[in-house]
Design a binder for these strands. Structure first.
Ligand SMILES: [Mn+2]
Ligand SMILES: [Mn+2]
Ligand SMILES: [Zn+2]
Ligand SMILES: [Zn+2]
Lengths: 150, 150
DNA sequence: TAAAAAATGCAACAAAGTTGCAATACGTTG
DNA sequence: CAACGTATTGCAACTTTGTTGCATTTTTTA
């Protein structure tokens, strides 16, 4: 594992004990541009034979402390991603944007751009807004390229 | 049922056969401002003792033809809502906005406002956008009022 | 190195939704 | 209105995804 010390530091910053499983999961999450499911992570860590309950608990711990966030997919499961580098690190319910690929079902985390006025309108109507998520659906560059070449 | 004929017409427009269960479900969905779960609908239609599988199939049928749409919640189940009156009626993957109340977990369907430039940015980056969903999280007016009064 | 607290692994459980299949209802045609 | 073909329904069994309880092991701090 290349960034082991970085991961250890990160875990400590979020008051999580350093364990081998957590380091492995962190390594997987840190090295992908997309959000990953429990099944994805299990597959990538197959050689370490990680217990399924331990992995669920690890992902819940990451989510609870704000190290990661989870996104519910259309097909009733969750994908996990570390918060983006430019996110405030301890901000759990920060604004968020995602791109959902309809072909490969990958979910990309995006920086949230401002400019939408729906928020202001709803606040005038008495809704109290704490965070927002903006989801784009379509085809990701990888899938689009594949399609075009065939 | 007040609007029985309206519902029948609606079902026929979407090429669905008219059945009693579908009329009841349609009636429930048409008379709420929020998206409803399988459990919510079962409860509201308790007197008719609707089979759970039939209800799932009904909701799937409504979703597939575009009469309704479903929203995945954080706690891995689905809420269903009819498309809004000002939606193009046969547009299945139309743009959408939702307000998610963190207190009561109700999801309100909102008209989608424009003005966000994330879409344009991602298109420049090679993502093909087919639809977008914008989600606000916070406290709805009902819950906010309750809290304030106590 | 010892003690306290937290994490792990296993088995059992739970919730949400799907599948297969026989029985029933819908709607079209005559 | 009757009869037929097709779609829908109801039931039981199953699947997927995730949680809970509890005994054991690991981590951390002193
Ligand atoms: Mn994200
Ligand atoms: Mn909606
Ligand atoms: Zn893709
Ligand atoms: Zn509320």
């Amino acid at each position: 594992m290349q960034n082991e010390n970085l991961y250890k530091e990160l875990l400590r910053r979020f008051r999580l004990k350093v364990t081998l499983t957590r380091l492995h999961v962190l390594d997987v999450l840190a090295n992908t541009p997309v959000a990953l499911s429990h099944a994805d992570i299990t597959e990538q860590l197959a050689e370490y034979d990680i217990d399924k309950v331990t992995l669920y608990r690890t992902l819940n711990a990451f989510t609870k402390c704000g190290l990661a966030h989870k996104v519910a997919t259309e097909d009733r499961n969750w994908l996990y991603a570390l918060h983006m580098p430019d996110d405030a690190p301890s901000e759990v319910t920060s604004d968020h944007a995602h791109f959902v690929c309809d072909e490969c079902e990958r979910i990309y985390c995006l920086p949230m751009e401002t400019g939408n006025n729906t928020r202001d309108i709803k606040e005038e109507q008495g809704f109290v807004i704490r965070s927002q998520e903006y989801r784009l659906h379509g085809t990701c560059p990888e899938c689009h390229t594949q399609f075009s070449q065939q």
